[in-house]
Design a protein around this nucleic acid. Structure first.
Lengths: 221, 221
DNA sequence: GTCTATAGGAAGATAGAC
DNA sequence: GTCTATCTTCCTATAGAC
């Protein structure tokens, strides 16, 4: 590539190292109440991701778990609540990544690390992410609203970071709302297309997207 | 903004004018065989977009059309075929936009016009686009494969354009496959978030994204 | 081409035994 | 906490009259 430190890679190793720290390594479903509930959550993720919430029956979910459909109701109030459990966890992770990256001093580095960590997580957990970001319409109003709060929070924090970069003279002045939305959009959409035969590893994708993020904000180098 | 002709807007009016010509103005469902079939297609678009294919019943579709569920089977072999009719049209439009833009001489202008036209179409027809790009899993294997051919075609043509820009010395050398995917990803995802209360008009969004496309390829200016 | 009526099956959720 | 059995509702698709 041609343009300065943005793409020569020296900085990218550092971004990848810092970003990798922000990607939660703890078992994703550690907070789920019981072992059986976790089994159902994992089965729900797989089936919801491939057939969608409405395309998935209880019998699809329990297939392979050795459980009955009735067992689900011991651990969740409904099929919809199982979906919410999954979605809420995903949104929480996203907000945590945005928070941790935003806490960094240098806005340039913060933006790169944010994008790297988010995209890497989306790629590594693309099955989970597909459910988290593409099945919101199947939730009831209360649950949908709860996630909307988290989403708005993440969006706002990205805009704050962008403004910080502009004030610091690191990013070009511009449409903060539009560019912020585009950056998150880019990251979320990874879950849609990143499939079983991906064109690059989560790390490689994170590196590329961290560069694209800098270019999008018109980093002045 | 700060960096040269890319963002100062002089060129953007020209991009918008050229791009607007590529956005099909013909009635989207003009090719659908009969008036009643068109009515069903339109109803299908609305319901599939809000509740998804599997979340939509035949009774949801026909509600408000004055037709019965049986009427649908006169015009389509199944609910799935109705979805395919919609999806196929959307993919066709996308390929047409990519084709028309790719035919332009200057790769910089071609890329901008491509992004402008595609994003503007996605925003203007976000209801249709939601169905086209987010319900493919509900199609049968044969229909899914037919769309995959069109999708691959569009992806390949975008990569050809990117390489043309690199060879011409207009774009920075780089990860053509990854950046091409990211550009399409950015455009497609508009359909997911562009809702009833959008933050900008389709034209404004197209302009912004045409600038982001240039930045993504590292236009050397 | 449209309707009413319905077949035939699968859906989400619950009852009650263990 | 888990099961089997089942309730009730809703689903896609078809039959047959007009």
């Amino acid at each position: 590539m041609a343009r300065g430190h943005v793409v020569t890679g020296t900085g990218l190793d550092r971004v990848a190292a810092l970003g990798a720290e922000l990607v939660p390594r703890r078992e994703l479903w550690a907070d789920v109440s019981s072992k059986t509930a976790r089994k159902l959550v994992r089965a729900g993720v797989e089936t919801f991701a491939t057939r969608g919430f409405h395309g998935t029956s209880l019998r699809d979910i329990i297939a392979g778990t050795g459980l009955s459909t009735a067992a689900l109701y011991v651990h969740f109030r409904s099929k919809e609540e199982l979906l919410f459990e999954i979605s809420h966890r995903g949104y929480t992770v996203s907000v945590e990544i945005v928070d941790a990256a935003s806490a960094m001093d240098d806005p340039v580095e913060a933006l790169q690390v944010l994008m790297y960590a988010f995209v890497r997580w989306q790629a590594e957990h693309h099955t989970v992410a597909r459910v988290v970001f593409y099945q919101n319409d199947a939730l009831n109003a209360e649950h949908r609203d709860a996630l909307l709060v988290l989403r708005r929070d993440a969006e706002r924090k990205v805009r704050v970071l962008l403004r910080r970069g502009i004030v610091a003279g690191a990013f070009a002045d511009g449409d903060v709302r539009g560019i912020g939305a585009a950056l998150l959009s880019l990251g979320i959409d990874v879950a849609r297309w990143y499939g079983p035969r991906p064109s690059g590893s989560p790390d490689e994708l994170g590196r590329l997207y961290s560069v694209l993020a800098l270019r999008a904000v018109g980093v002045l180098d």
